[in-house]
Simulated assay, not measured.
Amino acid sequence: MPGPLLHAGATCTCPHGAPLNIVAASPRVTVSGMPVAVVTDQGLVAGCPFTVPGPKPQPCLTTRWIAGAARVTASGQPVLVNPSVAVCFSADQIPAGPPIVAASQTRVVAT
C-alpha cells in the first residue's frame, strides 16, 4: 500500500501515548532534511505509563517494524511508510500494540 515515507523526525507514540523516537541507522538517504527510516531501524519509547494488573509495570520500550515498502529501499533495506506495520514491546518482549504516527513528511510517497 502506498504511503508517505517515515523519517527520523516523524511524530510517533506508543499505544499508551508515550513518545517514540525512530533511530535511523543510515543517514545517507534523507527526506525533509531527516534520515529515512528503514525496517531494521530502532524505535525507542520513553516514559510509557502502562502497567498490568498486579501492578507490574510493563512499559513499551522498543518497536519492531514488521513490513516496509515493497518497491523502495534505502541502503538495501525497505523504507518505512505511513501507515506503518509495527508492534511495540515491553522489556519482557510482551506485545503492546501498534505505534501511532501522528505526523510525518508528506512530499515523498513509496509503494
Rank of each mutant, 00 (worst) to 15 (best):
M1C: 06
G68M: 04
T62M: 06
S75R: 00
V31K: 06
A18N: 03
A8Y: 05
L44M: 10
F89M: 08
T111N: 14
L20I: 09
Q93V: 13
M34E: 13
Q58S: 15
N21E: 12
G3N: 06
A67S: 15
A103L: 08
T13L: 02
A24R: 01
V81I: 15
V31E: 11
L5Y: 04
P55W: 01
T111R: 09
K56H: 07
V109W: 04
A37D: 00
C60Q: 00
A70N: 15
F89P: 01
D41L: 00
V85P: 01
A69N: 07
A24H: 06
T73P: 02
D92Y: 04
P78G: 03
S84W: 00
V52T: 14
K56Q: 15
T73N: 07
L6T: 12
P83F: 00
A25L: 15
A67E: 14
P53T: 12
V52I: 14
A110C: 05
G68R: 05
H7Q: 08
L44V: 15
A24D: 05
F50Q: 10
G47L: 03
Q105D: 11
T106W: 05
V72C: 01
G33Q: 04
M1R: 08
T106V: 15
F50D: 04
A24Y: 07
V45P: 01
S90Y: 06
I66L: 15
Q105H: 11
V87D: 13
F89V: 01
F50K: 02
T40R: 12
R28C: 13
H16F: 13
A102S: 14
S90W: 03
P19V: 10
I100T: 12
Q105K: 03
A67R: 14
S104L: 02
R71A: 13
V101T: 13
V85N: 09
A18Q: 01
I22Q: 02
V85K: 10
I100A: 08
G54M: 08
A24V: 04
P4T: 06
P98E: 10
N82H: 10
F50I: 09
H7E: 09
A96R: 11
P78Y: 00
N21T: 15
P49C: 04
